[in-house]
Amino acid sequence: MLNTKINWWKYLTIALVIYTVVAGLLTEVPRLPILNETIRNLYFHVPMWFCMTVLLLISVIYSILYLVKPEIKNDFYAVETANTGIFFGILGLITGSIWAKYTWGTFWTSDPKLNAAAIGELIYIAYIILRGSFQDEQQRARIGAVYNLFAFPIFISIIYIIPRLTDSLHPGNGGNPAFSQYDLDSRMRLVFYPAVAGFILLGVWFTSLRVRLRMIEYQIEQ
């Protein structure tokens, strides 16, 4: 008896992502100088970072769970959510860079938000490399979990707190209003929130597939 039923939330993910694409291109947006139509990137670029942050939060929770109760599955969840988080973060960096080119005039400036995002990315790449450098399964999982425990607060503070304390070109930092000013426009929220939910669910889906593959691999090795 094969049971290959697809969970309901996966269909929800598809619905939300497709809705984002269609409504994101079709609905009215505020008319703002410089941004013009590129304001629609808000529906695609920003959810990448939301997705990354949520996945890294899940990752650190699994790391804590592993330290409390050392089961291999907790470690798999921790590392795979971090992997998917890095993936979405890289997409966020690239899309942000393209957007910056056509609104700020350059692909990269030494803006606190941008540099912090790049450093945050490196912190997590270091996590993956650190994990990979141990042969022993338990040692790898344990040290990885402890590293993750430190990495997450650093990531949050450099990416969300420090840019707010200094000047930054990026919206939402250093006295620079976030999109809340424009999205007073409830029309944008109607697309933005479903977009965030859709991409977060998509990230969870990717992660779940990779965790299942890891479990299969693990079971075959046993």
Partner: peptide
């Protein structure tokens, strides 16, 4: 443009569902 991008996304997500089912089969 919406038709093209929408179909691309839909196609990729359907592909993801097929992959998901395949993994379920291997698990079982």
């Amino acid at each position: 443009v919406i038709a093209v991008i929408g179909i691309l996304f839909l196609g990729m997500l359907v592909y993801l569902i097929l992959l998901d089912k395949k993994i379920s089969k291997i698990e079982q």
